[in-house]
Write a protein that binds this DNA or RNA. Structure first.
Length: 237
DNA sequence: AAGTGCTTCAACCGCTTGTTT
DNA sequence: TAAACAAGCGGTTGAAGCACT
């Protein structure tokens, strides 16, 4: 009988861990992080998985320098809202609260102080009103609320059977495919759900959804850009 | 080339808020 | 309605990389 709780892994993520997390999130969605952490086989907390996904692995993220427009917007919104980083981040598609927070600390605080003197409060530029559409770009498949043991064993089979396939892919390759203009989304969600999984850069995902009868639940986007579950199970309502 | 200080940013921590039972 | 749990948020830390001496 094993009663000793395993020590959770901390610190920087490896490429292999990233791959495992990406594949697990694609299969089960980015909601139940404790579940994702468990079935992925990663010895990480759900919290850690969520953070890694949100701040680094999320397909909608930008990975470059801030543009002048983004800089301007950060200054403007910080002046208005203060350190409400997540709120500010929602106005900057592809940027995370963590990234903006770091950026502010390193680049902008000084600049903002310099500019505060000559910036009138009415200088807000409506042309800079970005749409908060980051999350809408994320193709997600989620689990339903079924028996957790079934889901876990399903995932275990999936990961095991496809380990060799995953080995052939690096995160760089996945990013390139995600970022390539006109490239199919990871789950082909842009072209309709019936084609989901047909154009995956990671072959793991094509085979798993059809080869194993894992619960299939899809997110849909409502008119306000809010993700909702389109499901027969009612999970996530 | 080696040492030192600075910058950057990924990741953790603890608290708060929201959701489920 | 309250308790338990999950997710989100903002602050902080520390390692890695870079610039300068």
């Amino acid at each position: 009988m094993v009663t000793v709780r395993e020590e959770m892994r901390k610190g920087p993520w490896t490429e292999q861990e990233d791959l495992q997390l990406v594949c697990t999130v694609r299969l089960f969605g980015d909601r139940r992080w404790d579940f994702v952490a468990k079935v992925s086989g990663l010895n990480r907390t759900g919290k850690s998985c969520r953070l890694r996904w949100v701040n680094y692995l999320h397909p909608g993220l930008k990975h470059g320098r801030m543009s002048p427009q983004e800089e301007h917007l950060i200054i403007e919104l910080h002046a208005r809202w203060g350190n409400r980083w997540s709120r500010i981040a929602r106005r900057l598609p592809g940027r995370t609260d963590n990234e903006i927070k770091n950026y502010w600390r390193t680049h902008m605080r000084k600049k903002a102080q310099e500019r505060r003197g000559d910036m009138s409060p009415s200088s807000s530029s409506s042309s800079l009103a970005y749409q908060s559409c980051l999350l809408d770009t994320v193709p997600i498949i989620s689990m339903d609320g079924g028996d957790i043991h079934d889901d876990r064993s399903c995932m275990a089979r999936v990961l095991k059977s496809t380990q060799s396939v995953m080995d052939g892919y690096t995160m760089d390759q996945i990013w390139r495919e995600i970022e390539a203009p006109g490239a199919p989304s990871l789950l082909g969600i842009d072209e309709g759900k019936d084609k989901a999984c047909s154009n995956l850069p990671c072959p793991l995902l094509t085979s798993t959804m059809s080869d194993y009868s894992c619960p299939e639940v899809f997110w849909k986007i409502d008119n306000e850009g809010t993700r909702m579950l389109a499901t027969q199970s009612g999970y996530g309502k």
